[in-house]
Nucleic acid binder design. Structure first.
Lengths: 358, 358
DNA sequence: CTGAAAGCGCTAACAC
DNA sequence: GTGTTAGCGCTTTCAG
């Protein structure tokens, strides 16, 4: 003799104010139980505390009413928000969207959401963003903005805020991170070049305040040594930014200085792009005159002419793994922090060939 | 005789549980006023209701305590969340990041935030996402996923949910939107081609269930007429997706069918890319044999060979304008809904030239 | 197993 | 101008 269900509201789409959304109390009343019982019945964690029959009734009523728990009220009570902060430099940099999707896809699977903020690499914006996210009670953070020395992240780690880094790491800290195996990637790229017969290889190194920049440079030096190649300082150009212009400038200077090289290992694809520009400007052909390999496998670098050979970083997986790490951390704050190194792959296209000139 | 301020806590960065974050009550106690008064003093909207002296004292105490209002508690009380939902097909499509940043940048300026969800163009995912966002009490939506016929959006509009569309619109509905002026863009592109001397121009039309697809096609036909060009059905290829493969397929079929053309107007850059592929496959050169113009000015299309001439849509501004429209709507729900058409620009690069072959 | 009661932090009537 | 009171919707002791 349950009362007839009320006129079914269109599930999922409620009016701004046309019909008040049902609350837990409504469900409880309708089901003839106390709100606390309804709460227990509806929450998977506590469902076992309530009589199975009652629980089913509550569920039926909830469905028929189109009841949806109010996460805000729940948050206020539990001080948990089912949300995390995802801090990136700039969404329009094609590196980051796959990471974001990786994070969101795994988070979404367990009812979590991410607040995304762009810092444009401005520490002040970053601090403000973190503060604002903390106000919104995020339970943890994923940062793609780590610098080698990063006071904010160090402080966050010190006070135990659940945090996972992606792509980049701090100089010294045990903050869990998910990064590509830069050293491995560089080794692959260098072996590729050496196998092709190249002996004079230059490196366009990225900013040395970021772990990626220093790791790739270090690995380059290691590869030089491993392959018995001369480690001349002239074979190295430090670029102040991961930007096309910086890459072009570096290669132009190399050329102007009369440095001999048949191949260049660019710290990333943007630098490689700049390299293409500078080479073209000097009437040098790629790969006939010089081979170049990039890093990241950005969208459309396969459309360049020649298509860019590059080291692919599994960005989506980076994001997904980071989300897993963070969730794990949130569930069991005690578990020791792990970091993950993801394998990279060389994508061999047309921008590398055996050296023609000495 | 104000009591000495407590030891200053590191502002902005609080421990997970080390020190409890100060609440309004703490501030009120410290300032010797009732929480309600503190609330009024701290809230710009109501600050005028309280004695200026008292208000200043409250502010001082709040600062010294590092007090930050809890948006969750406020939301629960006010039923407003200072957040909106931003629904896009896929963040990894380079079209969308600039839109997202446009939205977030203006929203952030007034204390709003956006929840971003990806639907992968799946209506079921979209419905689920909207529902989940409604649970989170978003105050409104920006949709980049509109189809000509879109029951969900129609329902949302019907019940008065503040909503703004970007890029695409519905067939018939007065939902406010911010889009590029597709008709104008196509007209510019066609005039460009005609001025170059092209008379045989084909159009690779995008999906016809999206407003962009039909608007660009309609404008193409209009341009044919305006310039006195023959409107032969063979000069048109409908593509089932905005994808490179679809573009390649279309052009290949055109070639196979012996259709004569010296220029192609691609519905978007991806289609243009496919066009490049198909042309190359047949040993045809661009722009020597055929000129192509794209649509969108995606990142890196200036790096193709030849660099793609395309119609640029100001995506960032689209997002920014949409945010403004939505905010306005949230402040004054009554104000009549406007839609905005943003001017497009032709980016003339190297992929168009006077026709060589007839 | 279920109900009662309290309270998360804040704001909005309503008094005074 | 300020305090009082109540309550947003939910969870969580604590009793029974």
């Amino acid at each position: 003799m349950t009362p007839p269900p009320p006129p079914a509201t269109e599930p999922g789409v409620h009016a701004g104010s046309a019909v008040r959304r049902p609350t837990l109390k409504d469900v409880a009343n309708e089901a003839g139980v106390h709100p606390a019982t309804a709460s227990r019945a509806l929450n998977p964690e506590t469902r076992h505390l309530v009589n199975d029959e009652t629980a089913q009734r509550v569920h039926r009523v909830a469905d028929s009413l189109g009841y949806q728990p109010n996460p805000i009220a729940r948050s206020l009570k539990t001080a948990r928000s089912s949300s995390i902060g995802l801090v990136i430099p700039d969404l329009t940099n094609p590196l980051f969207p796959p990471i974001v999707r990786g994070v969101e896809d795994v988070l979404g699977g367990v009812g979590y959401n991410a607040w995304i903020v762009n810092t444009d690499n401005d520490p002040a914006r970053e601090t403000a963003a973190v503060e604002s996210l903390q106000n919104r009670s995020v339970e943890g953070f994923v940062f793609a903005t780590a610098r080698l020395h990063h006071p904010l992240l160090e402080r966050l780690a010190a006070i135990g805020t659940p945090t996972v880094l992606v792509n980049r790491r701090l100089a010294m800290s045990d903050i869990p991170s998910v990064t590509g195996d830069d050293a491995g990637g560089v080794a692959m790229a260098m072996r590729h070049l050496v196998d092709l017969g190249h002996r004079k290889i230059v490196h366009l190194a990225g900013p040395q305040d970021l772990s990626t920049g220093v790791n790739r440079l270090r690995a380059f030096r290691q590869a030089l040594e491993d392959h018995g190649l001369e480690n001349s300082p002239s074979r190295l150009k430090l670029c102040s930014a991961w930007a096309e212009t910086a890459g072009a400038k570096a290669v132009t200077e190399l050329l102007d200085d009369g440095v001999e090289f048949t191949a260049v290992l660019a710290g990333n694809d943007l630098l490689a792009l700049g390299c293409y520009d500078a080479l073209a400007e000097r009437g040098l052909s790629c790969p006939d005159d010089v081979s170049v390999v990039g890093f990241n496998d950005m969208p459309f670098v396969d459309k360049l002419s020649p298509p860019l050979t590059t080291v692919r970083i599994p960005h989506y997986e980076v994001g997904a793994e980071a989300a897993h790490l963070l969730l794990e951390r949130l569930r069991a704050p005690s578990r020791s922090a792990r970091s993950i190194l993801l394998p990279l792959t060389l994508v061999n296209r047309k921008s590398t060939a055996p050296p023609r000139r000495l």
